[in-house]
């Protein structure tokens, strides 16, 4: 092929330098830091690593983080599905506004979200006074952490579902109802299988964010070691204590969760692409 037939930007040197730039930036900005986390965590040997992980406060932080994720994910799963269903299957005034509002947690800095909750539910907040007179403490306790985490992660499931459900339309559901299926049968046999992978993808993202959330949680948690300390907060505390190996050990756990999440996401994406472009079946009899 002569040089004139190349499209603009197709010259070999352009291609090579662009690929080279992308790869080296990925390595410098992403791969090296992750590798450093694990090498630093293990620099003082396995026994120090396991001591740091099995430390009483570390175990509590792990437990609290898992509890938060365990409560947040199902809550947002239900909320996201209901919201996506409402805005894609019904027409009502304010529908567009609702679709815009769902993005607020993405647009607002998590720290601001934490402060809002503190102002609202804290001891001197609008609702906090009434709550504390009824002996309910939300802020500086685990319920507060769950609340802000739910806030920060609530768009993920809905955001995954809305475009998919919009594109699929409601014809299949209408076909189901004409055939006499009950509401639950339509949801479980028609809607759910159609949105299953998007739902799982949304859950994976929600979970990743719920485990790793720092800003909003740090405002409302009060950072009480062994009480309201999640894993990301624990990393910071250990680092401030000059326990670098401990901080890296805790950080390596978070990084490991993140990597597992990415693997799960890749599997889901692979499954999805296989469903959308199924391999042709051979034979017919």
């Amino acid at each position: 092929m002569s040089a004139e037939q190349h499209r603009v930007g197709d010259q070999p040197w352009v291609r090579r330098s662009l690929i080279g730039l992308a790869v080296s930036l990925t390595v410098i900005l992403l791969v090296i830091p992750v590798v450093v986390i694990f090498t630093e965590a293990l620099s003082a040997g396995w026994s120090t690593f396991s001591d740091n992980i099995l430390d009483e406060y570390s175990l509590h932080a792990i437990g609290l983080t898992l509890l938060v994720a365990l409560l947040t994910v199902p809550l947002n799963l239900v909320f996201g599905t209901a919201l996506a269903w409402a805005v894609t299957r019904f027409r009502f005034p304010g529908r567009k506004l609702l679709i815009t509002l769902i993005d607020i947690p993405f647009a607002v800095s998590p720290v601001v979200a934490g402060l809002l909750y503190l102002l609202l539910y804290g001891r001197n907040g609008w609702l906090g006074g009434w709550l504390s007179s009824h002996d309910v403490q939300l802020m500086f306790a685990w319920p507060g952490i769950v609340m802000v985490t739910v806030f920060v992660t609530c768009p993920f499931v809905a955001r995954e579902l809305i475009p998919l459900m919009q594109q699929q339309g409601s014809e299949e559901e209408e076909a189901g109802v004409v055939l006499g299926a009950s509401g639950w049968r339509i949801f479980s046999k028609i809607t759910l299988p159609n949105i299953k992978w998007a739902l799982i993808y949304g859950v994976v993202l929600t979970n990743a964010r719920a485990v790793g959330e720092f800003g909003a949680v740090s405002v409302v948690s009060g950072n009480v070691r062994g009480q309201t300390n999640t894993l990301p907060l624990h990393v910071e505390l250990l680092y401030q204590d000059y326990n670098v190996a401990g901080a890296f050990a805790a950080a390596s756990l978070l990084a490991a969760i993140a990597i597992l999440t990415l693997i799960a996401k890749a599997i889901v994406e692979w499954r999805q692409s296989r469903i959308e472009h199924p391999a042709p079946k051979t034979g017919g009899a």
Partner: peptide, 15 residues
């Protein structure tokens, strides 16, 4: 659901 009609959709709407 209770009208017992058959309906064929324009774009088939097969599950």
């Amino acid at each position: 659901r209770d009208r017992n009609i058959g309906f064929v959709f324009q774009h088939y709407a097969l599950f």
